[in-house]
Simulated assay, not measured.
Amino acid sequence: MTSRPSSRASHSVSVRRPFPLSHGTTTLGFIFQGGVIAAADTRASAGGLVACPAVHKITPIHSHLVVTSSGSGADCMLWERILTREIRLYQLRHKRRLSISGTAKLLSLMLHPFKGTDVCVALTLCGWDKLIYVCSDGARLQGDIFSVGSGSPYAYGVLDRSLSWSLNKEEAILLAREAVFRATHRDAYSGNNVDLFHVTAEGWRQRQREDLKEEYYRDMEKRV
């Protein structure tokens, strides 16, 4: 006669980490007269460790939409891939792209069942005329400016001071670079390089990745 396994043995036992792996980032997006600017740092952190200095936190979804990501790196990459697939399937079925608002609603509906779980995702959808923030509990917010991550308070300080609708393209790019630079200088979980995308009615364009250490030294020279 075989013994029946206990109920405790039949369930997987969750193992707690010996210490919490805090993570952080700095991502931002804002609307101006020339379209939408999306910018982010490139440091992936796990507690006090720099897991990777050169990750991509801005992902093109289609020709007129990019997404900035904050939260768990694995969760963000998974949901960006799912979103890209669903948008492509919609385009194949209906012979047109899903709108930015429709994309945000779709993402919110997909994430809502995971509310209260360990899924940690905060995505900002940056279309050429619209900015919508969606997080892992299904919340969906539309606005003219968003900054997400542990470095966002520092980025907001720069953006609130200088952002205006009348900025030209070069002024908007300089503002986004400075916002990310200031955040990475003060926030331990943000750093390394800056990625920047400019989204217009013609599509998105990616600016060449820049090393923020050089920005720091240029800033110090100005103060001398």
Rank of each mutant, 00 (worst) to 15 (best):
M1S: 12
M1T: 11
S3C: 04
P5K: 04
S12Q: 08
S12V: 13
V13C: 07
V13E: 11
V13L: 15
S14P: 02
S14D: 10
R16K: 09
F19Y: 14
L21Q: 05
S22F: 02
H23C: 01
T26W: 08
G29Q: 08
G29L: 05
I31N: 00
G35V: 01
V36Y: 00
I37V: 15
A39Y: 04
T42E: 07
R43M: 14
S45G: 10
S45E: 07
G47T: 03
G47M: 06
C52I: 04
C52K: 12
A54S: 15
V55D: 09
K57T: 08
T59A: 07
P60E: 10
I61C: 13
H64I: 02
L65F: 06
V67C: 14
S70T: 13
S72G: 14
G73F: 09
A74Y: 03
D75C: 04
M77F: 08
L78H: 11
W79D: 00
L83Q: 11
T84A: 15
R85L: 15
E86N: 12
I87Q: 15
Q91Y: 03
R93N: 11
R93Q: 15
K95D: 03
L98Q: 09
L98E: 03
I100E: 05
K105V: 05
P113Y: 09
F114A: 07
G116Y: 11
D118S: 15
V119W: 02
V119C: 09
V121N: 10
A122Y: 00
T124V: 15
C126D: 05
W128S: 14
D129S: 12
K130T: 10
I132R: 00
I132E: 00
Y133P: 04
G138Y: 04
R140V: 02
G143P: 08
D144T: 07
G151V: 13
G151H: 11
P153H: 08
Y156C: 03
V158L: 06
D160C: 06
R161F: 04
R161Y: 04
W165S: 00
L167Q: 01
E170D: 15
A176L: 09
A179Q: 02
V180N: 05
R182H: 13
R182A: 10
R182W: 04
A183H: 03
H185A: 12
A188W: 05
Y189T: 12
S190T: 13
S190P: 13
G191I: 14
G191L: 13
N193W: 06
V194A: 13
V194E: 10
V194R: 08
V194S: 10
D195Q: 14
T200I: 04
T200K: 05
A201Y: 01
E202R: 13
G203M: 09
Q206V: 05
R207N: 05
K213H: 10
E214S: 12
Y217D: 07
R218S: 08
R218H: 04
E221H: 05
R223G: 07
V224D: 12
